[in-house]
Design a protein around this nucleic acid. Structure first.
Lengths: 171, 171
DNA sequence: TATTGTTATACTCTATAACTATA
DNA sequence: TATAGTTATAGAGTATAACAATA
């Protein structure tokens, strides 16, 4: 009977080296190959960079992209319940609970028990939430979107958003 | 002395309702407001959708986008060590260990102790890894990228990737 | 002293099952 | 019975400190 192979991680690496390792500069940047043409790859790298910039711009208000999107949705859709707001953003209802706890404990929004259906919580921005959102929008417009627009050109930025929305919607 | 406010999540929601809740269809899709113009938002939604499609196309080979990118990099850059491959992909070295364990245990690649620097492991695709990569590339090209190209048009797809790469690189 | 691969750990996101109170 | 909010939990993904072997 053959002893089953131990996990690969335990087997110590051994033997042999690629033939002509001498040709490569050794410290040259790696070749991305077809990775550079893969939409998913550039999409992911760009998304990380954009969120990073958003976070740094929003630092004074301490709002994440997800929190900002929740506040925006509450403003545009007052009177909606948790399930509606969460599902619109692709957030699972259980995961939305802690998020709302955080926003509500900071006094940015409130949960009101609905009079028409006492199971559900109607979500509303507080005055502080509205004021914070005004400041947040100004920061995003002035320091974040403007920066992207300066990089790509405004018409390209708009075209980019439109294509991404189409991919998210129709792929 | 005032009792400190209990966590917002414990305070039961109460009273009051938005004035004219009667006007809204109640089941209408929510208004995204400025969210629809936020690059970060469409970027994130598109990225999730594209990865989802990639995963379903790659289902027969059981390769995640991250694993596929690692195999591609090994192919184009034979003889590089873990630190080089990981950092090129933005993966922390400690997190790369389990990933390599998985690929190596599946027989797709090997770690060879470098003869020039015995601290480092040179990464190489196995024959099975090369064969798997060939099949993976064909699947991605035929079922994934083609689908995106059909949706946007090939010239738009290329323009999209170029803009995303620029954002990732220069923002 | 510095670096490579590694371990351990922790924190965030995300996903699912199940409970409660209402309907 | 079905739904809204919640709890508990588990799995990815990601980040940092520290160690052994090697340079």
């Amino acid at each position: 009977m053959v002893i089953s192979k131990s996990p690969a991680r335990k087997a110590k690496p051994v033997r042999m080296q690629p033939k002509a390792a001498a040709e490569m500069p050794a410290d040259a940047p790696l070749d991305l190959g077809e990775l550079a043409d893969l939409l998913g790859y550039s999409l992911k790298r760009a998304q990380l960079r954009v969120f990073e910039d958003f976070l740094s711009v929003m630092n004074p208000l301490q709002l994440t992209p997800a929190q900002f999107s929740v506040l925006l949705l509450m403003e545009k859709n007052p009177g909606r319940n948790q399930t509606e707001i969460a599902s619109t953003l692709g957030i699972q209802r259980p995961n939305f609970v802690a998020m709302l706890d955080s926003l509500e404990s900071r006094g940015l929004c409130v949960r009101l028990r609905s009079v028409s259906d006492r199971r559900s919580h109607v979500l509303m921005l507080t005055d502080k939430g509205r004021a914070t959102l005004v400041r947040a929008k100004k920061l995003v417009a002035a320091k974040h979107e403007t920066r992207i627009s300066a990089l790509l050109g405004e018409s390209n930025r708009v075209a980019l958003v439109r294509m991404l929305a189409k991919v998210a919607r129709e792929l």
